[in-house]
Design a protein around this nucleic acid. Structure first.
Lengths: 353, 353
DNA sequence: CTTGTTTTGAGGCACGTGTCTCATTTAGGC
DNA sequence: GCCTAAATGAGACACGTGCCTCAAAACAAG
């Protein structure tokens, strides 16, 4: 019988400690500490020696031990809109779930709801946060100069900041969310392929088109529809402003006047337009292809019941955890796994819920 | 101006330690230790007192400190097939990536490739693993009595075991992977809706139909096709046995004899059948709807180029990390976040790669 | 009550790092 | 070479837990 491959040596290998570092560099542990934690009064030559030793030994600080010694805990805040959106509610739920596990890793997470239409107040709130009280903040707020400035000043003060879901002119890597242009494009691909007839109009419904996210989705949607499905024509976006009455009025009117073969609901609150559409479908006798965004108890139900054909979603749990991991990596000055932090554009059908 | 909501008290709250526990329960730290670590020679009454205190204080052991004290590291092994499958290669890559980050949390991970068709050897290998050398094993192997027994004995010996991707008659919760029935159903939904014509046959290609995963996918596929798309008829599965020549022969013959409107490639190695189909498409002049499984550099390329219409995938990085998290939770006797460990059935189109 | 056994307590050391203090060595300028 | 300031070292204590020893206390059986 062939020999079983043995466990490799490194499998049980011990990692070098600051003691090893000190010995190797020919200095004391106190000096190693001075270099590692950037304290003053160390000669450049000594710094180099220590860094050299770090390289050669492949030393990596044991963060658990360090945090234990410092009695440190990670304190993060999520600043979210006040809106009662089902999607937002899912986010909040998942932040709570994640925190309940992460307390064991000495992390404390807090959610603050602020009126998303009051940039001054958001800026004020952010202005009060200091490294004394908080390590990092994940901010979901529309892009305004005030908020952008407040975020910049947070960084300067040493508080890590992250844009969360809604995109603040891409603060470099400090952003968690999906590519909304691609999300819109994916909606168009599915919608175009699902529509069986030859030609017709496509209804596009949104709560508002004022946000950057909505514009990006619409842009991606139009691009693919024009390129790949020229027989379909997307109508101008109908804005509901979150009101079901308004949704009912404008949808009813448009559907009666045009030959609508499909609907794309591009904002995260799909409930109002879907309810209206369901009523209209019954009147017309035939269902049109309908695609919406975000998985909520409501859209899940609609998918199962066949009132929705597909949902383009981003996993709220993944969003929450990714934000937390990124904030933590930022405070630890560590890198993250790109593949893990990439938020996927999910396609949900009745069969893969 | 309204007042900014203050940070909650618990946000900076300290967690109770074993010292607090001892004081509260009116015992010594030694006794607390005896109870916490299940040592002998403690009166039931004392045990109750300590447990009571744990409840009331909401004590949770600081795992970092404990691991530091024990100088513990988590040692996990992935037992994988030898096959050169692109999907498997992705898995291995992501295990490596995850490990490179997790060494900081004192985890060591090792990958062992064993011939998947030699259950005795796999069982032998598993039989040699003891808690002395390993904390947990993730096993990807076809279901056989030998392997199943070996896994059971691992459990008895105190080594945590997990079925990885391929499913060993659901070992309870100790399994990481997707619901293959639902994956097949999702393939059918997309395929059915993508096919524009009225009726026709659907080609189903697999490397082999001997594995449970293949059967489940096929089952889900047939179910949805029959229920929702009765105008489409799925032909018996063609098995390639991994040989491109064989694939070419059987595909060419079937396509020439039947009116094929779509193809479902249900095994993870899509390369061979896809290459053949591409050639056939050119001959026939029109492309058929084609759906395959797993994201690999090859299927990504095919999606972008339009040779594939959709890919049903499971994120290999997620699989790897989920297995590691689960193994770790098992050794720590902790629970995991269900929502985080649920592997999603992803739908990939050219627009959401 | 005494004896022997079981249960508990007190205390120390360890893990790897952070953060002090105080003494000692080294370097630079004259 | 001397003086002073800068650089380094030696050592202690802390963080929360595990694990050990030895002594003290509580208990059970006679």
């Amino acid at each position: 019988m062939k020999k079983i491959p043995p466990l490799s040596a490194e499998f049980h290998g011990l990692r070098p400690t600051t003691k090893d570092l000190a010995k190797f560099a020919g200095v004391s542990r106190a000096t190693v500490d001075r270099v590692l934690n950037g304290r003053e009064g160390v000669k450049q030559k000594t710094i180099d020696k220590v860094n050299q030793a770090i390289q050669e030994l492949g030393f990596e600080r044991n963060l658990s031990a360090a945090n234990l010694a410092k009695n440190k805990s990670y304190r993060f805040i999520f600043v979210l809109p006040r809106s009662g959106d089902l999607f937002l509610r899912e986010i909040v739920r998942h932040i709570g779930e994640a925190e309940s596990l992460l307390v064991n890793d000495s992390m404390a997470i807090q959610v603050t709801h602020l009126d998303e239409n009051d940039p001054h107040r958001i800026a004020d709130y952010l202005g009060e946060l200091t490294p004394k009280t908080v390590d990092g903040v994940a901010i979901m707020a529309p892009e305004t100069p005030q908020v952008r400035d407040a975020i910049l000043r947070l960084h300067e003060r040493g508080v890590r900041a992250l844009s969360f879901i809604s995109n603040q002119t891409r603060t470099g890597d400090n952003w968690v969310g999906i590519d909304n242009e691609a999300a819109g494009a994916t909606a168009a691909t599915l919608l175009g392929r699902f529509v069986q007839g030859s030609k017709g109009n496509v209804l596009v419904v949104s709560e508002t088109m004022k946000s950057r996210d909505s514009l990006e989705r619409r842009h991606g949607f139009d691009r693919v529809l024009n390129e790949a499905f020229p027989h379909l024509h997307a109508l101008p976006s109908l804005e509901t402003y979150g009101s079901e009455e308004r949704a009912a009025a404008i949808l009813r009117e448009t559907v009666s006047r045009q030959d609508i073969v499909a609907t794309y609901i591009l904002s995260s609150e799909a409930r109002a337009p879907l309810t209206v559409l369901r009523g209209l479908d019954q009147g017309r006798g035939r269902a049109m292809v309908t695609i919406a965004h975000e998985r909520t108890p409501y859209t899940e139900e609609a998918l199962r019941a066949g009132h929705l054909d597909a949902v383009i979603a981003q996993d709220p749990g993944h969003l929450a955890r990714s934000a937390i991991r990124k904030l933590r990596a930022m405070t630890d000055q560590r890198r993250t796994l790109i593949s893990q932090e990439k938020i996927r554009i999910e396609v949900l059908l009745a069969t893969n819920l």
